[in-house]
């Protein structure tokens, strides 16, 4: 089932086209990554999904219902972690979460229960009575997440949730994203940190100038550029390996010796590094270092758009 369906979505600000005829389906259980440089139209799209902005053209459906006509239904089923931290610094963490959960109509014991649950989930259970003004950036982020998930939305949208925080909190947040996903939430994750997106997302869309240029799993995206990988093995200079026997290994396309480095070009989907190394050891070759070069999402982005993610 599609949790989110976007059809021909367009947003114009005057002459400027921020989102350009975008169509997209997000299925239940996905962690969907929006990868794009600043100003690519990620946040504009998200603001339209969360009804903060009105689209110039096109339809958005959340759980099969159009948000233009079922605005409340959509809002009840979406949790948003905005790009800028939005919590009240002069209210305790507990009050913050219960305030936001209350906006979604939770009352009484249920509200209390869900608030505590959300705080525990982000690891701020013991900080319930503290004021966020004394929190670190990472803790504020986590509190912000708690505010977004207390009403148990089906779809959680996280807009750059790891900007400007320490690595530890970052790991914590990435883990909570995974855990939320395991609990059945569908997640939309935007970032211009390629590594994060590569690590947690099950499907990724590359966005540029308001258009989706390519989408798919990270393997599919990498396969856009090439389906081969390079293995460079540095060996002891005096050894002379049998290149021909390396070429016999499944998946190897070319192999050659340059100085003291064996350069192998191999099919990307076949994992044959083990067999290459076994062969070398059998021949009594001393291996100094092994390096595998496969394209990453950064190269995919660079090749497709001609620009870096952080331009």
């Amino acid at each position: 089932m599609n949790v989110l369906e976007i059809r021909n979505l367009t947003k114009k600000f005057g002459d400027f086209i921020a989102v350009d005829n975008m169509s997209l389906n997000i299925r239940e259980g996905e962690i969907f990554g929006f990868l794009g440089s600043n100003g690519a139209g990620k946040s504009t799209t998200i603001n339209m999904i969360s009804s903060l902005l009105r689209s110039t053209k096109g339809d958005i459906e959340v759980l099969g219902r159009n948000i233009a006509t079922n605005g409340k239904f959509a809002k009840m089923n979406i949790g948003i972690v905005p790009q800028d931290i939005s919590i009240y610094e002069n209210m305790t963490s507990y009050e913050n979460v219960s305030f936001f959960a209350g906006l979604y109509g939770l009352r009484g014991n249920l509200l209390k229960e869900r608030t505590e649950e959300a705080l525990d989930f982000v690891g701020l259970g013991d900080k319930a009575k503290s004021f966020p003004k004394n929190f670190s950036g990472g803790m504020k982020r986590r509190l912000n997440i708690a505010c977004a998930i207390a009403h148990r939305p089906k779809l959680i949208i996280m807009d750059e949730p790891t900007v400007g925080i320490d690595p530890q909190s970052r790991n914590y947040i990435l883990n909570s994203v995974r855990k939320l996903n395991e609990m059945g939430c569908t997640i939309i994750y935007t970032s211009h940190y390629m590594e994060e997106v590569e690590e947690i997302c099950t499907r990724i869309a590359i966005v540029d100038h308001g258009k989706i240029i390519a989408d798919g799993t990270k393997e599919q995206l990498k396969a856009i550029i090439t389906d081969t990988k390079n293995i460079w093995i540095e060996i002891k200079a005096t050894d002379s390996p049998s290149i021909d026997s390396l070429k016999q290994i499944q998946g190897v396309i070319t192999a050659q010796l340059e100085d003291n480095t064996i350069k192998i070009n191999s099919k990307g989907e076949i994992n044959n590094l083990n067999r290459v190394i076994q062969q070398l050891i059998k021949d009594g070759i001393e291996i100094r270092s092994v390096e595998e070069q496969a394209p990453n999402l950064e190269t995919v982005f660079l090749t497709l758009t001609g620009r870096n993610l952080r331009d």
Binding site: A214, A223, I224, I225, T226, D227, T303, L304, G306
Partner: peptide
């Protein structure tokens, strides 16, 4: 003009 694995890319700069 660049031929990639899944795309043909043409850039005019």
């Amino acid at each position: 003009v660049q031929v990639l694995n899944k795309f043909v890319k043409t850039v005019v700069t």
